[in-house]
Design a protein around this nucleic acid. Structure first.
Lengths: 334, 334
DNA sequence: TTGTACGCGTTATCAA
DNA sequence: TTGATAACGCGTACAA
């Protein structure tokens, strides 16, 4: 609650110069072993914490990676977790800024910029490409867009092939015998169009009738529940439902369960993400696996590639999702 | 991707001095209306973002509030959301640091300290009081512990009365006729003991036999599933189960559903938190409501109280949870 | 092996 | 109403 300890405090305590303390703390060659030890001891005893701001100011670049994410999206939590681990491996820290209902991504990004991070990773950005491009001109380091977007000259993109992932789900349902397959579309999500197109592609190729339920909002559990209620009110149910992500699929499943509709006996359901609870023995959701650990790792890797060599052009990294078949899908009973 | 815009850039563009630009941007009296407008226009055009680090350096205090939280805990997301809203109202920003499996809270806190925030809010801190006290001496501003802890001289505490919340759930179950009530204890959570004591208190007062299932780990859905499996393997089921939070309750419910056990017909279940999905029509969980919006608001309020008047002593704010009866509880059928 | 001097972007205190 | 100057904590030349 008083003033934080500075290097000068340590120097005064030990009886050496301030910059010598700096060298010791950064483990540079020079200081004697004895000095080293005394400085480290004093730093610990006095509770020294480096001042990120001062460091960034002096170096005109920090060893922090800024991350903008939406905590309510399950998958983004997992990606963030992986970003932490990967960044730490490379000697980088992470500073988080959240997108919430009262704090839109445009402001969250503005906040992140204030820390002058070495790089900026934006997960699930709902900004148009033009704004992201503009952004990448204002930040001192590279910008990485995780989740959606396409190859471009301003920022890196790391995403899974959403169309292929949904296509895997739809094809799996067709393979086990389904014909009436509904897609629950997340129109406001940046990855929405790609995933929808995967559904359309496979349905068209199989000459099946498409039926899409559009849900607005942030596409978490409640969106799935909304879609389920719409289906329940709409007469005959399809035999299978493809959701755009696991959270919506969970909302669907729970609402159906409540209405006495059994899964997969009465209707099969698939998701996208393979999030933590999809694997829970009790949810057991068939889904397209989009490895969040890998996405986090690739995001950091893309960022640091351009931090270390600013001349490099931005790249697009697409990971292919894989189908994870679990108990929420089975051949149709009707 | 080049250098970020500074006040000096704006000053050069407009043709005035840096410090005048500073005054305009902070809306201080002095600059003429004409200057004001030209500076603001240039700032916008050049994409100026204030450098938090430089600001904190100069002022020895920032207008940011540091928040340490665990993204995997549903409730903490909601508290963070409320912190954002409340902080913004008071003119403060938020900088987030996450606790993850690879990034323990001790390091997360260390990270947060590096930003020299005006205050530090720690949600669900798993640190002993002694360490939190030590921490509050190292940070320039107040420390607020949200979720657990007791009144002390070093840091503020904001929590709900966990014992009373669980007591409400247990009493409700007894009121509708249950006698065999099991508690699923989160022994490693900081709020664990308080909630457990609420169960013990009411069971003892009603001369009922206590049965506690202990679950370690971070007490999310999988903990509930684990407890459910233990119960299923252990012979006769109780007629009601009280979980320490909603996520564990959900895990329980899902695993039971999978095993063909109906809720509430075969067994009643209660949670704690009233998190987003508890209210989902399909989950419909009876739970103790711990208003996360209120907790976030109180956390920011406690913090700013001492930021604005450092002489104030830390306080403890306890909010009483309320019982929310939904469809997961009913009189026992056995 | 250690100390001196400067600058990063910003705010604050003066004087003009 | 505006402009010069110092200082915040730190890193990095360079000199001793």
């Amino acid at each position: 609650m008083d003033r934080a300890t500075t290097m000068a405090d340590i120097a005064a305590d030990v009886g050496v110069s301030r910059q010598l303390v700096s060298m010791v703390l950064r483990d540079l060659p020079g200081p004697s072993a004895d000095t080293h030890e005394r400085v480290m001891e004093a730093a610990k005893r006095l509770g020294y914490t480096p001042h990120f701001g001062a460091r960034a100011l002096r170096q005109s670049t920090s060893t922090q990676i800024g991350v903008v994410f939406a905590p309510t999206h399950e998958t983004e939590q997992d990606i963030v977790e992986s970003i932490y681990a990967t960044a730490a491996d490379q000697g980088y820290g992470v500073v988080l800024t959240a997108t919430t209902s009262s704090h839109p991504s445009s402001i969250a990004i503005e906040d992140a910029l204030g820390y002058r991070c070495a790089a900026l990773i934006i997960i699930g950005a709902d900004l148009p490409p033009s704004q992201l491009s503009a952004l990448s001109k204002r930040t001192p380091g590279p910008v990485v867009n995780v989740g959606a977007g396409r190859k471009n000259r301003s920022y890196d993109v790391v995403r899974s092939a959403g169309d292929n992932g949904i296509a895997l789900c739809v094809q799996h349902l067709i393979d086990v015998g389904h014909r009436k397959i509904v897609y629950v579309d997340a129109e406001s999500m940046p990855w929405g169009r790609a995933r929808l197109s995967g559904y359309e592609r496979v349905m068209t190729a199989n000459r099946l009738r498409k039926r899409v339920i559009r849900v607005s909002g942030d596409y978490t559990e409640e969106s799935g529940s909304t879609a389920a209620r719409e289906l329940l009110a709409g007469g005959a149910l399809p035999t299978a439902i493809v959701a755009g992500n696991d959270q919506a699929a969970l909302g669907l499943m729970l609402t159906f369960a409540r209405a006495g509709i059994r899964i997969p006996d009465d209707v099969s359901v698939t998701g996208y993400d393979d999030s933590r609870f999809a694997a829970l023995s009790s949810v057991d959701l068939t889904t397209a696996r989009q490895d969040p650990v890998e996405m986090g790792r690739l995001a950091v890797q893309s960022a640091l590639r351009r931090v270390l060599d600013p001349g490099q052009s931005p790249i697009e990294t697409v990971i292919e999702p894989t189908l994870v078949v679990r108990g929420s899908t089975s051949p149709p009973s009707r």
